[in-house]
Every structure is written in C-alpha cells, then in structure tokens.
Amino acid sequence: MRKLILWNVITLDGFFEGEKNWDLSFHGLIWGKELEEFSLTQLRSADMLVFGATTYIGMADYWTKATDEEGEVAKFMNELPKLVCSKTLQTASWKNSTITKDAVREVTKLKQEGNGNLFVFGSGILSSSLMKANLFDEYRICIAPIFLGKGTKLFKEGIPNQTLKCIETKPLSTGGVVLRYLPHINS
C-alpha cells in the first residue's frame, strides 16, 4: 500500500507562502546541501507527486524552466508522474500529468495500488481536504527560522483534531529543522 506524505516548508509562524502567490523567498534561508539530499531521498521514494491546481501551475512553470543548478531534483520533478487535483483545470501539459476532479476518491484509490510514496507539495487547500478525509500517512515539515507576519497559512481552521507522533527531528546547519510526524486519529 502506498503512503501519502505531506511535505512543506513553513515559517515559524506557520506560513507556507508570503502575501503573494509563490512568494517563497524564505526557502532560501534553509536551502543547502542537507535539504537537497533530503529532497532527493524523498523524490527517489516517490511513485507520484500530487498537487492542487495553483501549486501545479507554479511548479510546472518553475521546473520546466529549471537550470542545471537544480540538477537531479529537476530531473525527478519533471519525470515523475503527477496528479493534479482540480475541478477547474481542463489541461495539464507538464510531462506525465493527469487531472482528477475528485481528489479524495482518486488518492484513496491510488494508495491501494502500489508500494511507493505519494507526495503532496504545497497545495494548502488540497492538503486540508485530504486531512479532513484522514488520508495522510505522514507529515514532513521543514521549519524556516523566520516570522513572516503575513501570508498564506498551511494549516487552516477546520482541519480535524489529531494527535501526532514525532518520529524524527533533523536540525539543519542553515537553522531550519525538518520534522516528521505520524498521525493518530482521535476518537
């Protein structure tokens, strides 16, 4: 059975982007060799990447224009199969992309069909929907050491109450911390 894993970089005050779409400038604070290796380890274990429409459009724009500096990460991002969860997108032109209008149903089905990992990057609205359906098997968060003050929060009001079990904390030399949690569904 595949595992569904949320991966995001957030600020210490909980934002996964700044005031404008794709304001990810704080990612530069924590990016380095350690996080690159962690990212590659994740991508090597991935069967598929899962995105909401806004994140898909931004990722496709960025990774299809990636330079040699992004190297192996860019190769994985462009080659891996991608599922776009959107009720409005009609086309998905990024290589190996499929659109679904029913994210919960499709992700539930995909989890039953293999042994690799499905990763959700970014995609705050989609993540909330998948959290409400209790579909995540793991949460991986990198905390950037900054208070942004304004922006888009990753975790919105209305997500289910869950107790989490911390299975790893990995401090980075850049000042960031990677946290890995398993969910426990509260009764």
Rank of each mutant, 00 (worst) to 15 (best):
51 F>N: 01
62 Y>M: 13
63 W>P: 02
62 Y>Q: 05
66 A>M: 09
51 F>C: 02
86 S>I: 12
79 E>I: 05
56 Y>G: 00
68 D>Q: 09
51 F>E: 01
53 A>H: 06
56 Y>R: 01
73 V>N: 01
66 A>Q: 09
47 D>Y: 03
85 C>R: 05
74 A>M: 07
38 F>I: 10
63 W>Y: 04
80 L>P: 15
52 G>N: 03
74 A>C: 08
46 A>L: 03
39 S>A: 15
61 D>E: 12
78 N>C: 13
50 V>C: 07
69 E>G: 00
47 D>L: 05
59 M>T: 15
74 A>N: 02
55 T>V: 00
79 E>N: 10
46 A>V: 05
51 F>S: 01
53 A>I: 02
39 S>Q: 11
70 E>K: 11
86 S>F: 08
49 L>D: 09
86 S>Q: 12
45 S>M: 06
63 W>N: 04
76 F>N: 07
67 T>G: 15
52 G>W: 00
70 E>W: 14
77 M>N: 09
37 E>I: 06
37 E>G: 08
73 V>A: 09
40 L>A: 10
44 R>K: 15
69 E>Y: 04
70 E>V: 04
69 E>L: 14
53 A>C: 05
58 G>T: 11
58 G>C: 07
75 K>Q: 08
81 P>H: 15
63 W>R: 06
37 E>M: 08
82 K>I: 01
56 Y>H: 04
48 M>S: 03
57 I>L: 15
39 S>E: 10
49 L>H: 06
58 G>K: 08
84 V>Y: 05
80 L>R: 14
71 G>N: 05
74 A>K: 04
38 F>C: 02
75 K>I: 05
77 M>D: 08
44 R>D: 14
52 G>E: 00
60 A>F: 03
46 A>W: 01
86 S>A: 12
76 F>M: 02
74 A>W: 02
53 A>F: 04
86 S>Y: 14
37 E>K: 15
85 C>T: 11
83 L>V: 12
49 L>G: 11
70 E>G: 00
75 K>H: 09
66 A>Y: 10
61 D>L: 01
55 T>R: 01
58 G>A: 09
56 Y>P: 01
61 D>T: 06
50 V>S: 04
46 A>N: 03
66 A>W: 10
72 E>T: 06
65 K>S: 13
69 E>R: 12
68 D>N: 06
59 M>L: 09
47 D>M: 06
52 G>C: 01
66 A>T: 12
63 W>L: 06
59 M>H: 13
47 D>G: 15
48 M>V: 00
65 K>N: 13
54 T>E: 10
85 C>F: 10
82 K>G: 07
85 C>L: 11
84 V>R: 07
65 K>M: 03
60 A>Q: 05
49 L>R: 10
44 R>H: 12
37 E>A: 15
85 C>I: 09
46 A>Q: 06
43 L>P: 05
39 S>N: 08
81 P>F: 12
70 E>S: 04
77 M>G: 13
59 M>K: 03
59 M>R: 01
80 L>W: 13
78 N>S: 09
81 P>Y: 09
81 P>K: 09
63 W>G: 06
53 A>P: 02
44 R>L: 03
45 S>F: 03
